[in-house]
């Protein structure tokens, strides 16, 4: 049985009917990167607020590293690192003075050297004050403050906002290092690319509800795939439509047949062989289509 760092049952906070996060049954495996994906306003941040003790659920329950986020907030925060969405930097603090304050509040002197190391890695100048930092540098400082106390679980709301592609890649490497040390990362994003690049597991939230939650590899298996067959003679589309897994067939006059399918390809190849296909062209798996289908609320099965 997979050990879960975060789990929830019917976790709900609704600002208005259908707005917020409703009946979330999350299962975030320990030691993995879980990507929480959904359009803006879908409920990702609301879910994160409940998991990080900022908001009390109206219904349901959550367990974060075995603790109730609302009841055991202080104990949880000792082991948790959090970056809220678009986290601003306090105006009167430099990065260095903020780290010193956090070291005192957490009673963890190592927060300062750890933070300095992270800042150097991310190219962040810790001597600048909060109001002098650009969006990207504020984001870097947020990441540094979220990670400097070496938390067991890191919850990051839109962590790559404002970061250039090189830094996004560096964040990916950093998060991989965390999971290699046995830590867990839950990150939210509206970016398909981010989640595909970083996460092992994904959860899709749309209109306040979790619509799907699965390993990324499984998602790839479910993805719509495209194959192009060429025949010497035109063929009837019905010959392919009856093949299990085939969803759509487009037949051209020149003997070209485009097939969209999900699942195992064996039956499809067998049928193409029987019909005398001369060439086959398989397109790479595009998770984007699957993501977008979930975004749009289309069936994933």
């Amino acid at each position: 049985m997979v050990e879960l760092a975060v789990s929830s049952s019917s976790l709900t906070y609704e600002y208005a009917p259908g707005v917020g996060a409703v009946d979330l049954d999350l299962a975030v495996p320990a030691g993995r990167i879980y990507g929480f994906l959904g359009p803006n306003g879908a409920g990702k941040s609301t879910a994160i607020r409940m998991l990080t003790s900022l908001v009390r659920p109206q219904r349901g329950s959550a367990s974060v590293m075995g603790l109730d986020p609302w009841v055991d907030a202080s104990r949880l925060h000792e082991r948790l690192g959090v970056l809220v969405s678009d986290q601003p930097a306090p105006r009167h603090h430099t990065g260095a003075s903020l780290l010193r304050l956090l070291a005192k509040l957490r009673r963890r002197p190592d927060v300062v050297p750890n933070g300095e190391t992270l800042a150097e890695r991310l190219g962040l100048n810790l001597e600048k004050r909060g109001h002098e930092l650009s969006l990207g540098n504020r984001q870097k400082l947020g990441l540094v403050t979220a990670l400097a106390h070496e938390p067991e679980l890191v919850i990051l709301d839109e962590p790559t906002n404002g970061l250039d592609p090189l830094l996004q890649r560096e964040i990916g490497v950093l998060l991989r290092e965390l999971t290699a040390q046995g830590r867990t990362v839950l990150l939210s994003s509206h970016s398909l690319h981010d989640v595909e690049a970083l996460a092992d597991h994904v959860g899709f939230i749309r209109d306040a509800r979790l619509v799907e939650q699965l390993p990324l590899t499984e998602l790839a298996e479910r993805a719509v795939r495209r194959v192009l067959f060429r025949f010497d003679e035109p063929v009837d589309s019905a010959a392919f439509e009856r093949v299990p897994g085939v969803e759509h067939v487009t037949v051209a006059d020149d003997g070209e047949v485009a097939v969209q399918y999900r699942g195992p390809v064996a039956a499809l190849l067998s049928r193409a062989g029987q019909l005398g296909a001369t060439t086959i062209e398989a397109h790479p798996v595009e998770l984007e289509e699957t993501f977008l289908a979930l975004y749009r609320g289309e069936a994933s099965e």
């Binding site: 900022l54 907030a73 959090v82 809220v84 601003p88 957490r106």
Partner: peptide
Amino acid sequence: RDQTLAVLAVTPLPR
């Protein structure tokens, strides 16, 4: 309001 409370609200300091 300006969300600078966020960095403090997720420390072990009780509310």
